[in-house]
Amino acid sequence: MDFDGILFFPVTPFDAQVRVDTDVLEQHLSGSLAHAPGGVFPACGTGEFHALSATEVATVVRTAIAAVGGRVPVVAGAGGPLGHALEVARSAADAGADALLVLPPYLVSGPQPGLVAYVEAIAEASPLPVVVYHRGTAQYSVDAVRRLAANPKVVGFKDGVGDIGTAQLIVRAVAETGRHDLAFFNGLLTAELTQAAYRGIGIPLYSSAAFAMAPEIANAYYRAYVDGDEDRRLELLDGFYTPLVRLRDETPGFGVSLVKAGLRLGGLPVGGVRPPLVDPTPAQEEQLAAILEAGRALVSTIAVAEPALP
């Protein structure tokens, strides 16, 4: 599976009764698709998978597939309690998704053979290929990933732990198996802050929560990253991503909450987050507005200084 561009993780909008708002979700997707993401990952971490029922996940995935219309791959979330994971895996296949992102199981931490069996059970539940998400209660050893790489339905590995040494060993172990088609992603929060290091160990792709609320800023960073323009990349890193991360780290769960707040500030009524996450305070929203304004000002300066892309 090929991904050419930033990996877009949309939010799940809720209406005034905290129900999934498919009309606003369509607007969110359509607006972001205009900025050419490399893939769309609905009902995953940024989409509050943890707070959605299986029926709601199916609704979100179905809405996303219709909005994308085959332009880029759609990778749906599947995880949590095994029964829930199997149900959403099947519904994603029925809706026409291209693959599944296997999120961690709920609460318990099993041994490595159990984690492998968890991924294999989800892979067997539908005809879809799967991307393994390495984080939380699902932290895979090098040997476990080597075993998973023997399964042709496992087509990707997303690192959300941040142990560069282990990630490097996993990349090399997969290469030793002869699998050169397995995609590697940096899935850390605000991945732009760490992607330069990840590229150095053979993980060129990354997910961008910032793309969901400010695609023009995320794309400016991505162009600098791809082009090797370190001056421009560091300008955006220092002027936008570093203060964004500082604000994000004030409250657990703000990796999602701030994205929704940013969309609301931009006029898209995506609603708030569901518990146990919390929304930013008015003062924190003011800080976010200032950070977004500074980031967009940097992008505007870059656009004036450079010729437009074809």
Rank of each mutant, 00 (worst) to 15 (best):
D181E: 11
Y241F: 15
E56V: 14
E293W: 05
Q139G: 05
A214C: 06
P129N: 12
A191P: 07
V270G: 10
T194G: 09
T194W: 06
A283E: 15
V72N: 01
I302Y: 02
A85Q: 08
L128Q: 03
P204F: 04
M213A: 05
V72F: 03
V60Y: 09
D2S: 11
G77T: 09
G69R: 11
G187P: 04
A173K: 10
T177I: 10
K153G: 05
R71C: 08
S208Q: 05
G110C: 07
A36I: 00
Q139N: 07
F254N: 15
A212I: 03
G162P: 08
S30D: 15
E286L: 11
G70Q: 14
T281F: 09
L268K: 02
P113W: 12
A173M: 05
T281S: 15
P152C: 12
T251R: 13
T46G: 04
A16G: 00
S32L: 08
S30N: 15
R274Y: 07
E192C: 02
F185D: 00
E285Q: 14
E124C: 11
A261N: 07
I203C: 01
L265D: 06
A261L: 09
F3T: 13
A308C: 08
A196R: 10
D163Y: 04
G295K: 13
T301D: 14
F184T: 05
P204M: 01
L205G: 03
A43Y: 09
E26Q: 14
D238K: 11
G45R: 08
T166P: 04
D4H: 08
R71A: 13
A85M: 12
D229G: 03
L189F: 00
L189V: 04
A261R: 14
V11L: 12
P42L: 01
I291E: 06
L247H: 08
A305D: 12
T281E: 07
V68I: 14
S53G: 15
L52W: 12
T12A: 03
V68S: 01
A197S: 13
A67W: 10
L247R: 04
T55I: 10
T59P: 00
V116T: 13
E293G: 13
K153P: 04
N219C: 01
D231F: 05
L247I: 08
Y221S: 06
A175H: 14
L29I: 13
V259R: 10
G110M: 14
L182K: 01
E56L: 11
I291G: 10
A67M: 08
L298F: 11
V155D: 01
P280A: 09
V18L: 06
E56K: 12
L29D: 09
D279T: 03
S30E: 15
L188W: 00
T55F: 03
A297I: 10
T59L: 15
L277N: 12
R223P: 00
V11M: 07
F49A: 11
I170N: 00
S126F: 11
V130L: 09
P280H: 10
